Simulated scan of single mutants.
Amino acid sequence: AALAPLKDVHLGLAPPCRGGARLALLSGHYLYYHYGCDGLDDRGWGCGYRTLQTLCSWPEGQSTGVPGLDAMQAALEDMGDKPPGFRGSQSWIGCVEASLCLAHFGGPQGHLCHVPRGAGLQGELERLYSHFTSGGGPVMVGGDADAQSKALLGVCLGPGTKAYVLILDPHYWGTPKHPSELQAARRVGWQEVSTAFDPNSFYNLCLTRPNS
């Protein structure tokens, strides 16, 4: 059965560091989409679609206009990005496909950024900080060696060399009634950048901005 998505599930989390740290969180509101939330069992392949749905729900935090997985696949096929037969498959999508779908469905603007293999996200922290402090929304992240899609909701830089990102993970299966369940299950929470990302993977980012 379809679930009513929970809103702004990061609220209530304590910041990971204090004392001189620079903290930046997304503006606006979002809904948390995850495995099976619409009654479709997409475990093992649907994380990119679920993260894209979360991006589409921003900045109002409403399900109005959020496409289903079938509509996303049909759009990618119609645009010629995917071959005939993609619709109805269990093929993954990443940030490039997400940016195409955001434009197609009239969602927020999606700006792509490529992070070379071996760089992790350390070199993008200032970009992310500026993104969030200037009214930006959730940032989709996906790679090759680390192909598990996720969203970034904020950054915390310092003091010293410590750096953290607020990660929203769509790989949740169940019927959460309250954000505290997701926080306890570590499906949303702060993680240190140096351990949260695979240095052997490249990454793509899709940064959302209001659709002007």
Rank of each mutant, 00 (worst) to 15 (best):
G28A: 05
R186A: 14
R117H: 01
Q183W: 00
A75Q: 13
Y164D: 05
Q148R: 14
Y172R: 03
V141W: 07
C95V: 10
M79N: 03
Q53D: 03
C17A: 15
K162C: 12
S99L: 00
Y35D: 09
P138W: 11
W45A: 06
A1S: 14
D8A: 12
A151C: 15
M79F: 13
S149Q: 15
R117M: 13
Q191N: 11
P84W: 02
P138Y: 07
S63M: 07
A75T: 13
G28H: 01
L13A: 06
A75E: 14
G154N: 04
G189A: 03
G136Y: 07
C95M: 02
G189S: 08
D198L: 12
L76M: 04
Y129G: 06
H34R: 06
G65R: 05
G120D: 10
A14E: 13
H111C: 11
V165L: 11
Y32I: 04
C95S: 09
S63D: 14
K7R: 15
N211A: 15
W58L: 08
R18P: 00
R186V: 03
Y35A: 02
G154D: 07
P67W: 10
A14P: 10
S91V: 09
W190I: 06
D78R: 15
V188G: 07
C113Y: 12
L182W: 05
L125F: 07
L157V: 01
L55M: 15
H131Y: 09
F105N: 04
Y49F: 15
D146L: 05
Q109T: 10
S194F: 01
Q90S: 12
G48Q: 10
D78P: 00
Y30D: 01
G123S: 13
S57T: 06
Q122V: 04
H178F: 08
F86L: 03
Y33H: 15
P159A: 11
G135L: 09
P59Y: 02
A163V: 10
D144F: 10
C156I: 01
H178E: 13
V139Y: 08
G20C: 11
S180Q: 14
G85N: 01
S63K: 11
L26Q: 12
Y30K: 01
D38V: 00
E77N: 00
W45R: 06
G65N: 04
A151P: 09
F197R: 08
W190Q: 05
G39K: 01
E124I: 00
F105I: 01
G106H: 03
L153F: 11
T161F: 00
D169L: 06
S63W: 07
V155D: 04
Y164L: 03
L13S: 04
G94H: 11
T133E: 13
Q148I: 14
F197C: 09
R187Q: 15
C47Q: 02
D144Q: 13
G36L: 01
F105A: 08
V188W: 09
K82R: 15
C206E: 08
P159G: 12
Y129N: 10
P210L: 08
Y203R: 04
A4Q: 12
L121I: 05
T208P: 07
V193P: 03
Q53K: 10
H104L: 01
C37N: 12
